[in-house]
Design a protein around this nucleic acid. Structure first.
Length: 462
RNA sequence: GCACGAGUGGCAGAGUAGCUAUGCAAUGGACUGCAGAUCCAUGGACCCGGGUGCAAAUCCCGGCUCGUGCUCCA
């Protein structure tokens, strides 16, 4: 089966074909580090992490670029509110971003360019656009002139020039006073007093919101590249703006071969938002769920569909993840022949992933494999599919350590447990069920679970 | 209002006309004193209304609902 990828622009799954054989250039819009990372960020970078891993599994050499928009209005607002330099704010949130994403086993991209380190390239790009007649400067900045390339409008969202109403909802008023047309967007914003700034041909200022991604993708991936990703909300205006900027600047089109957008995160059926009070940062979520259980939950739904996180859904995922781990541990010491066809399940897993990276279908195959007898071959199978590709397994050494600690803990209380169990056995022989259950309850309180089997009771520590 | 997407069993999710999708959960049974684990089995769906067809979740028309975007947003 061949890899098929859903492309937002053509609105269909297309067979994936790299521009350069065996190589993939992938750019994913990164965060604006003005606050801590939330579950929406986690889903986005997790989705592209799995896409990244799958492309590599399929033999592509992936050049993965993810930016930080480390200067922007909101960062400035936070820095003013906290009376700290904006660089402190953005660095703090970038550090936090890496911390939580690392915990979720999200592999690092190859490059993490920052706006503040790409200013010369941005200025160059804006100048070029101005030179080509796609941009004009006005009293408060430089703007992209939509009228200079109207045919490019609406490529990702189907919006027409007429339909984008001026000041929708009355919220645009008061910004961008120098625009000729309300659809134009800022390439360079002149600094107000006390705002951070860089020198430019148009005066002291900073880049507009969209231009940084065009400049950084051009710098790292060239005039044309394979995949551009981001959250669903970025299609318009952000990604459409990028198409204008990049294609008008370089004259090469299309700038991007496959536009990929991940779906949103809802909480209990509602959009996650600060105003609804159901806003979860990633680190908040870690208080209730382990990073890998959260990863399991988020991968349980294909990346394009919206995901509704309810406590039932998350609990399920946490249980499944726990089962996965214990099946993996069980497989370490197994010497019996496995009772399922691992090859078949591997094939189904791969078919799912080839179908627009359907991690849901892939997880179903994992569930099938872990409900087998976990015989010979399962360990390798899980390491490959659940571990390397979906990133759901902790390192083996860590688990072995845990097993070792657990067996140590078991030894420490073994005598006591065994003697209690022998009392229980006697009680059971006498059919004194009350007494037997009482002892079992006592063991439970010690954290020991007793399970009666054909060859007597077995116990384990939970 | 306009644009884009979506509506399948408790949840997730395949499926572009005929054949049990599947996974988890649920229910029943077996095994257990009970519980757990395990095994076996089972039920249950295609937003609504029309139309075309021998046959429609699947095609056509109309409607409804939801999400997202049009404004900073992953």
């Amino acid at each position: 089966m061949v890899l098929r990828v859903y492309d937002t622009k053509s609105r269909q799954k297309r067979v994936f074909k790299a521009l350069e054989k065996g190589k993939v250039g992938m750019y994913v819009c990164g965060i604006t580090p003005y606050s801590r990372s939330h579950l929406g960020h986690a889903r986005c970078y997790l989705s592209f992490d799995v896409i990244h891993r799958w492309l590599e599994y399929r033999g592509y050499e992936v050049n993965y670029v993810q930016n930080f928009t480390d200067i922007d209005d909101k960062i400035i607002a936070v820095s003013e509110a906290e009376n700290m330099d904006y660089t402190v704010i953005s660095q703090r949130n970038i550090d936090e971003f890496f911390e939580v994403m690392d915990k979720m086993n999200i592999l690092r991209a190859d490059h993490y360019p920052r706006v503040t380190q790409t200013i010369p390239e941005i200025i160059e790009m804006v100048s070029e656009l101005e030179k080509k007649g796609n941009a004009y400067s006005s009293e408060d900045g430089v703007y992209f002139d939509i009228e200079s390339a109207p045919e490019k409008y609406g490529q990702l969202t189907g919006q027409t020039l007429e339909n984008v109403r001026a000041g929708a909802g009355g919220r645009v008023l008061g910004t961008g006073t120098g625009k000729k047309n309300h659809r134009d967007f800022a390439l360079w914003k002149l600094a107000k007093p006390d705002e951070p700034y860089w020198e430019s041909p148009w005066g002291k200022g900073r880049p507009g919101w969209h231009i940084e991604c065009s400049a950084m993708s051009l710098k790292h991936l060239g005039k044309q590249f394979d995949i551009h990703g981001g959250g669903h909300d970025l299609r318009f205006p952000h990604h459409e703006a990028e198409i204008f900027q990049s294609e008008c600047c370089t004259g090469v089109e299309p700038v991007v071969n496959y536009w990929m957008h991940n779906g949103f995160v809802n909480i209990d059926g509602e959009k996650m938002s600060k105003s609804l009070g159901n806003f979860w940062t990633v680190s908040d979520s870690f208080k209730s769920y382990s990073p890998l259980a959260l990863r399991y939950a988020l991968l349980s739904v294909p990346y394009r569909s919206p995901i509704d996180l309810t406590s039932e859904f998350l609990e399920d995922a946490a249980n499944h993840h726990e089962k996965l781990i214990s099946a993996y541990v069980d497989s370490f010491s197994s010497d019996v022949k496995v009772d399922i066809d691992l090859k078949e399940h591997g094939k189904s897993f791969e078919n799912s992933m080839d179908d627009d990276f359907n991690s849901r279908g892939a997880i179903i195959e994992i569930q099938k494999v872990i409900s087998s007898n976990c015989g010979i071959g399962v360990e390798d199978w899980l390491e490959k599919y659940a571990g390397c590709i979906l990133g759901l397994l902790p390192p083996k050494e860590e688990l072995l350590n845990m097993v070792k600690k657990a067996s140590q803990a078991r030894e420490d209380i073994a005598d006591k447990v065994e003697s209690l169990l022998s009392y229980r056995d006697k009680a059971r022989e006498n059919k004194d069920w009350d007494q037997a259950d009482k002892i079992r309850e006592e063991l439970n309180e010690m954290g020991v679970v007793v399970e009666d089997g054909e060859d007597g009771p077995r116990w384990k520590i939970v």
